[in-house]
Amino acid sequence: MSKNSAFTVDPPDVVLTVKSKSRKRDAMTIEQALSIIFRQMEITGRRPRTIESYDYIFNDFTGQLRLEYVDEITADSIYDYLAAIDVAPSTKLIRLKAIKAVLSRFFDNRWKTNKFGRLFS
């Protein structure tokens, strides 16, 4: 019997599963899309405060849900966001209207194929 045999420990098999989003190089990122539509809003005369508000709300929405690409936004993700935020119902309505305004620009630019405004009446 060798000195080391008493201290031999077989480590358990450890399997780590990592979910990773594949890089969609051909898909538009939300950051790129927001940059374009906010510039369009400036050109068409939207007030800077309105654009700042849309930017804050939409970045909060995509940040909480960790959305990176335009095609990841679904009606379910909007419902999930509204359910997750702890604000007054009137504030939820304001945030929903801001998200709908941004998404309608995504639709107008043909980055989204469905108009979300009809889903949230």
Rank of each mutant, 00 (worst) to 15 (best):
M1W: 10
S2G: 14
S2F: 12
S2M: 11
K3G: 10
N4L: 15
S5I: 15
A6E: 14
A6G: 11
A6P: 04
V9K: 10
V9M: 11
P11S: 08
P12Y: 08
D13K: 13
D13S: 10
V15G: 07
L16R: 13
T17E: 14
T17N: 12
T17M: 10
V18H: 11
K19Q: 12
K21N: 09
K21I: 08
S22C: 14
S22H: 15
K24S: 13
K24I: 12
R25N: 14
R25K: 13
D26I: 11
D26F: 08
D26W: 04
M28L: 11
M28Y: 09
T29L: 07
T29C: 06
I30W: 01
E31G: 07
E31V: 10
Q32C: 07
A33H: 03
L34V: 04
L34G: 03
L34K: 05
I36N: 03
R39A: 09
Q40C: 09
T44R: 10
T44K: 12
T44F: 02
G45M: 06
R47E: 11
R47G: 04
R47V: 02
P48E: 09
R49D: 09
I51D: 00
I51F: 01
E52S: 12
S53G: 12
S53T: 13
Y56I: 04
I57M: 05
N59F: 01
D60A: 11
D60I: 03
D60Q: 11
F61H: 01
T62R: 02
Q64H: 14
R66T: 10
L67R: 05
L67Q: 05
L67V: 06
E68G: 09
E68F: 08
Y69H: 10
D71R: 08
D71V: 09
D71H: 13
D71Y: 10
I73H: 02
T74F: 01
T74M: 05
T74P: 03
T74C: 03
A75F: 11
I78V: 13
I78H: 02
I78N: 03
I78D: 02
D80N: 14
L82T: 02
A83V: 11
A84T: 09
I85W: 00
V87K: 05
V87P: 03
P89G: 06
S90F: 05
S90V: 07
S90R: 11
S90E: 09
T91W: 01
L93V: 13
L93C: 13
I94G: 06
I94V: 14
R95T: 06
R95I: 05
R95G: 04
R95N: 12
L96D: 00
A98P: 01
I99G: 02
I99M: 03
A101I: 01
L103R: 00
S104T: 07
S104V: 00
R105C: 05
R105W: 06
F106P: 01
D108S: 08
D108Q: 10
D108I: 05
N109R: 07
N109V: 04
R110N: 14
W111C: 05
W111R: 04
K112P: 00
K112N: 10
K112Y: 00
K112F: 02
K112E: 11
N114W: 07
G117V: 07
R118D: 13
L119T: 11
F120P: 01
F120I: 04
